[in-house]
Design a protein around this nucleic acid. Structure first.
Lengths: 209, 209
DNA sequence: GCCCTATTGTTAAAATCTTGACATAGTTTT
DNA sequence: AAAACTATGTCAAGATTTTAACAATAGGGC
């Protein structure tokens, strides 16, 4: 019966979560949609509308309890549970992701790092050894791998994604410079850094006019 | 007189550019909005509508010339010119960005890499030495720096951004885990990797239901 | 414990974005 | 050179998203 939540709303949730986390760190106990809207540069109406997709988290005359709202949004996003992540591609970006994610307080845990390059075999990245791709089936069988981050050349991205899905990994965080469509039974989140850079470039060009 | 183009359209342009680049590589000379729509999984109507924001690039009965359209979108995005980029923060992510951007065919060129950590001073990353932040003013004076990529802890992000702007850098590609608002005269593109990961997490949770 | 104030949840209007439809114009075939 | 076909550019309808408005309700002060 769940009404489908629009991706526009979903895209904003992590941002709410981030601001609420900061408020929490600052010891702020309660916040009104109006105060939050000023900090975030969005309309108060949008905040209330967004939150109400998931239920009434606030109270009239009081506002929202920061800790409670933070926790609720965390639940919605599913970041209060732990997610095991493996990284495929142990280049600079792969290593950066491995380090980056671990540093977050949210519940993502890097448990494996894989590459095809035999020269990297066994190399330690933080506390993880680089493993070869052919060790993947065994590894996935023995570990509860939920998410695979793909940081490899676009030529290998699709075949690797298909392989991962066939091995039981159903979520892919894709950094390869290609869209992974047409793959059934898998949740995909694309991070196209060069797309982002091009948007910046466009806005620079506009700004100059 | 330019009608403002919506950010929704801008967000799609890099994707068009990418697909057209691939078609170009494959030696495809012409393409119809209909064929492209099937490859990209969007409606043909949207493609035509989007492109028409910038002028008529196609011909009735023929479609679009791939090379021409690719070039035109490149112009719109401003990627046919060269943009000099510096990276502030020489950690894993900074090094990854430095390498990543260089590998792209589009016109972004990393010309400097900076950090505060004295231990990194002079360390070579590819062909660039890590420089200390206090060398920044001199460097910017002597080089035409257009974009600064910020890959540093959120605590330092805003002050560094302000400093960059005062030194004449007017575009920031922000990887720090904080929004950089309230800074005038600067174009900002935020890349929040953990936001992206949380969206993935949400979609995983939904998928399971 | 009552009144006043603050602020939500919610409805409706406004704005924006997407899709469908088709006349028009250029291409290809005969 | 004409006919048949293809596919754009564009208009209008439909869908979605955002914003504004306000009645209802809880909190804080008296």
């Amino acid at each position: 019966m769940d009404k489908q939540i629009s991706q526009a709303v979903i895209r904003r949730l992590p941002r709410y979560y981030r601001y609420l986390g900061e408020l929490l760190d600052d010891g702020v106990e309660r916040i009104s949609s109006n105060d939050l809207s000023k900090r975030m540069h969005v309309t108060a109406s949008q905040i209330r509308q967004d939150l109400n997709n998931f239920g009434g988290f606030g109270q009239q005359g009081y506002g929202y309890n920061v800790a409670y709202l933070h926790d609720e949004i965390g639940n919605i996003l599913g970041v209060n549970d732990t997610h095991n992540v493996i990284v495929i591609g142990a280049g600079n970006l792969g290593q950066a992701i491995a380090g980056y994610v671990k540093f977050e307080r949210v519940g993502f845990k890097i448990i494996g790092l894989f590459d095809v390059n035999p020269e990297l075999k066994g190399k330690m990245v933080r506390d993880l050894p680089v493993q070869m791709l052919d060790e993947l089936p065994e590894f996935i069988k023995n570990n509860n791998v939920e998410i695979a981050a793909l940081t490899l050349p676009k030529q290998n991205a699709k075949s690797t994604a298909l392989k991962l899905v066939s091995l039981g990994v159903h979520a892919i965080w894709n950094f390869a410079h290609v869209d992974l469509d047409d793959i059934p039974d898998v949740v995909i989140e694309n991070v196209h850094l060069s797309d982002s850079l091009m948007q910046l470039s466009y806005n620079i060009t506009q700004h100059k006019k």
